[in-house]
Design a protein around this nucleic acid. Structure first.
Length: 495
RNA sequence: GGCGUCAUGGCCGAGUGGCUAGGCAAAGGUCUGCAAAACCUUGUACAGCGGUUCGAAUCCGCUUGACGCCUCCA
């Protein structure tokens, strides 16, 4: 029997503004769409937080026994640098500046994104569609929206008519805005806009002669608007209404608002049942952002080559650090905070490593079921990973108590305990049980330590204390470090 | 200016109308030839001012501050 039948999952639905009991459209199956990156530059750590948060959510849903179709797009066209009429496609701009084919830009940063996601131990989505791969579908849905009367074309571009839409539907319900306020508070644009109303947004943009990314359409050569791809790809792979839509908090408006409008305009009903928004990662108290330069790249963190941190941190530590905050809370990234996370994770890992050598008894004095109930309760409460981690530390305390024979555990309980605690740390939180740090300084430390051990062994051999020298060699071997004796001396390698 | 979120002990970070969050750090202890490590024990904190209440850090109001969105951003 799948776990989800016992576990009542509640999640915070942004559009309702409250936690709701989760009920999928089809029993046991979930469709989840997450807005992916625009691949015009390297993903920074803030971007990663969102994807790691939804990876954890995907993992937990899967852990509960749901069959999840997880779609996360790659935006490789259509994302404008700004909303003005002269707004340029981000990919196109980067290609122009670096004298590359747009698809070279896309390829470079898609590879970077995949590489970083792999380092963070995220599970690839079931489908990872691209905007350029769905131009035909985007053109089709634009036609539909025009037919329904919610879009107009002008000078080879097509705009969504927000005011018209708002007469029959409610624009702004996700982000809590009403159209009147928006009209009165909209900043005046210097340039004369071809849009009927400043709130209108582009479904299709005419390509100027110099624009290198262009596709033919009924309205002339051009490229699709940013919001459209998500509407098209989510409905194509998950249906016109699906269970969960995720993304960063900063996409709530206008991006997700526009998605709702497009979906309702084209299909007549709301596209999403549960909207989930992951909060921002800040650096020195300010939102990480490519445009302001206040950001740190994952590679810089893993290598220690950055101005913010005193040492290198492995992907697992960074991920564990992120999991210590709830996904809906703003999290500030700092040297002290991640250092604390590193020590905590080590303690947790050390405790779990003790599981294999625990003595079993005929009866348990510890209540493992009560412990796991609390762990599940934490996750069922809108994926409260900080509480889950607190329970994992309680688990560590239990392990130590048994190890010191202050408490007892039966074989049956131990098996369940081990399975559960590992499932939560490895499978749900996605923390690997060990990982190598590509830390130059760290390697130097190990080298220094190994040199000392090797010297001690050499001394022992010199005085024919082979008990000691063999012990060193054999135990290192067992620990995965192989000594190599040669006429030049002794070296070591990891196995 | 509009909309929204948040202010928790040295740091990070949960949660709750009355009962221990957790991690890091710190102090004491166990262990140890000495250290280190490890493990155990210890924290009554919740921006300020009012109000509701038998009781609020938790609810309401105001003040102050921070952040996010309103323009591209995960």
């Amino acid at each position: 029997m799948p776990l989800y039948q016992d576990e009542k999952l509640r999640l915070y639905n942004s559009i309702a503004g409250e936690k709701q009991v989760f009920k999928p459209i089809h029993e046991g199956q979930i469709g989840m769409y997450v807005c992916g990156p625009t691949v015009y530059s390297n993903v920074h750590l803030g971007n990663c937080r969102t994807f790691i948060s939804f990876d954890m959510i995907y993992r937990y849903l899967t852990h509960l026994g749901y069959k999840v179709r997880y779609v996360r797009n790659i935006t490789d066209a259509g994302h404008l640098t700004d909303d003005a009429d002269e707004g340029e496609d981000k990919i196109s701009k980067k290609a122009r500046l670096e004298k590359l084919e747009p698809m070279e830009v896309v390829q470079q940063y898609t590879l970077d994104f995949h590489n970083v996601m792999q380092r963070f131990n995220t599970i690839p989505p079931s489908i990872e569609p691209t905007a350029t791969g769905h131009i035909v579908e985007q053109i089709e849905i634009i036609k539909t929206i025009i037919e329904k009367g919610y879009a107009y074309q002008i000078n080879g571009s097509v705009y969504f008519d927000v005011l018209k839409f708002n007469k029959d539907h409610q624009y702004g319900k996700l982000s809590g805005r009403n159209i009147e306020d928006m009209i009165t508070s909209t900043r005046e644009l210097e340039s004369q806009s071809e849009k009927q109303s400043p709130q209108d947004f582009a479904l299709w943009k005419k390509a100027s002669p110099a624009h290198i990314m262009r596709w033919p359409s009924p309205w002339g050569d051009g490229f699709p608007g940013w919001h459209l791809e998500c509407t098209v790809m989510s409905s194509k792979y998950l249906g016109e209404t699906f269970d969960i839509h995720g993304g960063g908090m900063d996409l709530k408006f206008p991006h997700h608002e526009c998605e709702i409008a497009q979906g309702e305009a084209a299909h007549g009903h709301s596209p999403v049942n549960y909207w989930l928004h992951a909060n921002m990662l800040t650096l020195e108290g300010k939102k990480m952002s490519k445009s302001t330069g206040n950001s740190i790249l994952p590679q810089e963190l893993f290598s220690g080559d950055n101005d913010f941190m005193e040492k290198a941190f492995s992907p697992s530590i960074v991920r564990f650090f992120m999991m210590q905050a709830q996904y809906r809370s703003v999290l500030d990234f700092s040297n002290d905070a991640i250092l604390a996370a590193e020590k905590g994770l080590t303690r947790l890992r050390d405790a779990i490593a003790l599981l294999d050598q625990l003595q079993v008894s005929s009866k348990s004095s510890v209540d493992i079921k009560a412990w796991s109930d609390k762990a599940y309760a934490a996750m069922n409460d809108d994926f409260n990973t900080p509480i889950l981690i607190a329970e994992l530390f309680e688990g560590a305390k239990i392990i130590h108590s048994i190890n010191e024979e202050k408490e007892t555990i039966s074989q049956k309980d131990l098996d369940y305990f081990e399975t559960t605690i590992k499932a939560f740390l490895y499978d749900v939180l996605g923390i690997k049980n060990s990982d190598a740090v590509e830390d130059v300084k760290g390697t130097q430390h190990i080298d220094a330590a190994m040199k000392l051990i090797i010297d001690l062994r050499a001394t022992a051999r010199a005085r024919k204390d082979f008990d000691t020298s063999d012990k060193i060699r054999d135990e290192l071997q067992a620990a995965g470090i192989q000594l190599k004796d040669s006429s030049e001396g002794t070296t070591y390698t990891t196995i």
